[in-house]
Amino acid sequence: MSTELKPDKVVDLKGLPCPMPVIQISQQIMTVAVGQVVEAITTDPGSLADFPAWAASTGQEIVGTDQAAGEIRFYVKRLH
């Protein structure tokens, strides 16, 4: 499902370990308009737990997650 999502912005976070992916997404999500989607690509397995936790705390939404070949893609929708 998530592969059909068209992101408004793509952020490459490959190779960045904790805590950088969540710090980056928290800043990048504010650069798009409310309702738009940011695609974040990480290689940090910890982000599988961190992104949903971040979204729950900050009130943003993960609308899709893709996992392939060591890369994790999150589609994050800015809700506010």
């Binding site: 805590p19 969540v22 971040w54």
Partner: peptide
């Protein structure tokens, strides 16, 4: 510092 910067990301 990881917790501190992470906490900023968490709002």
């Amino acid at each position: 510092l990881i917790i501190a910067t992470g906490a900023v990301a968490m709002g």
